[in-house]
């Protein structure tokens, strides 16, 4: 008796020390990163802010794609692995529309109108393709074991990449963008024009999405379906239609990201979706998968981290390493993500 009591008494503080060490290490790492950032901010402010601009631009793209992962995961707990490739197809389509169809290769009024038209078409394309995939493949598998839709998503990813090779070729294709790499300088900070376009498109899209989900009837249906599908049915919500709508919104965001990627980098590749999709998925997990604000926060954070690393840190070669190291660390210290909620539910 007394021995087990002593053991218990010993075990308890040692557990606390473990947790304390863990948390301490976490804060120490954060502190180190903050110190690193502040040091560069003080030493070379112009270069630092230029890097931030690059990071935010990149981060906005990640955020748009990450939303597609998080929306779909939030409602049917499926990691839609084909989502990155959907984005890639949208970028290829945008290239053909902007350059081949509209001939928009310089900053003219017509080119900006073409940009808006392409944005709408790319979003419709993304929404339609994603909804079709849900309708044809995922809906039948909704009651199947979780691995079946997951593997289907991986399979679709290859189908989309095949579509990418057929339309874009097996190598990189370069396109003229309407703004090129031109930009302007404020207080020694270089801001590319494409960044303004990316912001001008992304911010309204995010606000619009938030409005749809928080304020509209369909948004309420989406949130209810995400929390409890059967209960949503009992409210008279058409669950199938609501899930379709969720795929449509995610696909539309990826469609917009495709055009913005094209206008930022001027290139398309059939495997661009694999890389960006993986990072965007990481962003969604980092922010707390299922949480929309988390996806945006995660996307921007990863964009910033990458930009800071590429400019001041270990260099481009280690870009991915740094991103995924951060993901692994976060999963250790805060598995639910930055804004995610711990998964405890009152029964």
């Amino acid at each position: 008796m007394s021995q087990t009591a002593i053991e218990a008494a010993e075990a308890r503080p040692s557990l606390a020390v473990g947790a304390l060490l863990e948390r301490g290490t976490g804060y120490l790492l954060l502190l180190a990163v903050a110190a690193f950032a502040v040091w560069h901010l003080v030493a070379t402010p112009a270069a630092f802010f230029t890097t931030l601009v690059v990071g935010i631009n990149q981060g906005a793209l990640y955020a748009l794609i990450a939303l597609g992962y998080t929306l779909v995961y939030g409602i049917i707990e499926l990691i839609n692995f084909s989502h990155g490739d959907l984005f890639m197809l949208a970028s290829v389509l945008s290239g053909f529309l902007m350059v081949s169809a509209f001939g928009a290769t310089a900053a003219t009024t017509g080119a900006f109108l073409a940009l808006i038209a392409t944005l709408v078409l790319a979003m419709i394309f993304g929404a339609a393709l994603n909804t079709t995939a849900e309708r044809v493949a995922y809906r039948r598998l909704r009651r199947a074991p979780k691995l079946a839709p997951l593997i289907t998503a991986v399979g679709l990813s290859f189908v989309y990449q095949w579509g990418g090779i057929k339309s874009n070729g097996s190598g990189q294709r370069n396109w003229d963008t309407i703004l090129g790499s031109s930009g302007f300088t404020v207080l020694n900070v270089k801001v590319p024009w494409s960044m303004i376009v990316v912001t001008a498109v992304t911010v309204p899209l995010l606000l619009g999405l938030n409005w749809v989900i928080q304020k509209t009837r369909q948004g309420k249906a989406m949130r209810a379906t995400a929390q409890d599908q059967d209960a949503a049915r009992l409210m008279g919500i058409d669950v199938d239609r609501t899930i379709s709508l969720t795929f449509a919104l995610g696909g539309a965001m990826a469609g917009a990201a495709g055009l913005l990627y094209l206008q930022t980098f001027g290139t398309t590749r059939y495997d661009a979706g694999f890389q960006l999709g993986l990072i965007a998925f990481t962003a969604a997990v980092l922010g707390g998968i299922g949480n929309l604000n988390g996806a945006v926060l995660g996307g921007v954070l990863i964009g910033l981290v990458q930009a800071l690393n590429d400019r001041f840190g270990l260099g481009v070669a280690y870009s991915q390493t740094v991103v995924f190291t951060i993901l692994i660390l976060l999963m250790v210290f805060k598995p639910e993500g930055i804004l995610g909620k711990p998964t405890t539910e009152k029964v």
Binding site: A224, A231, E345
Partner: peptide
């Protein structure tokens, strides 16, 4: 209208939002 076994309220919504969803249609 069905008040199901196990209550099945929407836990992350407010009481009022739950009531509003009851009147969804």
């Amino acid at each position: 209208c069905h008040s199901p076994e196990g209550r099945r309220i929407f836990p992350r919504m407010t009481v009022e939002e739950n009531l509003d969803l009851g009147a969804f249609l």
